[in-house]
Amino acid sequence: MGRWAGRTLMILGAVHLVVLGAQNLDFVDEWFTGALWGLPREEFIHPSGANGAFWSSIGSFAVPMMLLGALVADLARRSVTVPASIGWGLAVWCVVGAAILEPTPMLLGLVPAALLIRQARAARLSAPASGDRAR
């Protein structure tokens, strides 16, 4: 379950990055000319143009989501269970985001969240009771 959760997170992050990156290719040249340096406060509150394109693509959650997915998949490969709190946190983030913005693909994040929660629960149920451990 952990490997699939990690892979799903990596795929979701990559799709987000590719799709929104492709939609914002017109602004890439501005990113590397210093156009985003020293922006007025208003641009941070209401990003538009090259600034908005940056925050919806390379500056978005996509790269951290891919890194989290890689970590989760690697931990699963090593038979390390990710705490259920990671799955619950991801689930809450997706539900809150979906409540704010609809329609949204954020609900797809519930798939890896559920896998992580199930994996943690299965690990907890299969673990020996603390009193049964040899000292």
Rank of each mutant, 00 (worst) to 15 (best):
C94G: 03
G131A: 14
L110H: 05
P128R: 09
I86P: 03
A113M: 06
M65R: 02
R118I: 13
V95S: 08
A99H: 05
L71M: 13
R124P: 03
L71D: 06
A76G: 09
V80G: 07
S126Q: 11
S85I: 13
A122M: 11
E102M: 14
L68S: 04
A113K: 09
A91Q: 03
L68E: 00
V111H: 03
L107K: 09
R124M: 03
A127N: 08
A99V: 12
T104S: 15
L116F: 07
S79A: 15
R77T: 15
L101Q: 13
G69D: 00
G109D: 02
A91M: 11
R78W: 06
A120G: 09
P103N: 06
A129Y: 10
L101H: 14
L125R: 10
S79I: 06
V63N: 01
L75R: 15
L90V: 06
G131S: 15
W88Q: 04
A99F: 13
R77K: 15
G89V: 03
A120D: 08
L115E: 01
A114K: 05
P105K: 01
L101C: 08
G89A: 00
T104Y: 04
P112G: 02
W93H: 07
G97P: 06
R124H: 12
T81R: 12
A99G: 15
R78M: 10
L101V: 15
P128K: 10
A123V: 05
S130L: 15
L107W: 12
L67G: 05
L101G: 09
A76M: 08
V63P: 01
P103Q: 07
T104L: 01
L90K: 02
E102P: 14
W93L: 12
P64K: 06
R78N: 10
G87N: 05
S85P: 02
P64M: 00
L110T: 04
L107A: 11
A98R: 07
T81D: 08
V63F: 10
P64D: 00
A122G: 07
A123F: 02
M66S: 03
D74Y: 14
G89F: 02
V92D: 01
L90E: 02
R78F: 11
I86C: 08
L101T: 14
W93F: 13
V96Q: 00
P112S: 05
L108M: 14
V96E: 01
G97Q: 02
E102Y: 15
L107Q: 08
L101I: 14
W93E: 01
L125Y: 03
R124K: 13
A84T: 10
D74F: 12
M66R: 05
I117D: 02
L67T: 05
A114Q: 07
W93G: 02
A91W: 06
G87M: 06
L108A: 14
S130N: 12
C94S: 10
P105V: 09
S85M: 10
V92L: 14
V80E: 11
A114H: 06
Q119W: 08
G69L: 00
A91L: 04
L125C: 02
I100C: 10
A122P: 07
V72E: 01
R118E: 09
I100Y: 11
C94R: 10
A129N: 12
A114M: 08
L71A: 14
S85N: 07
V111A: 12
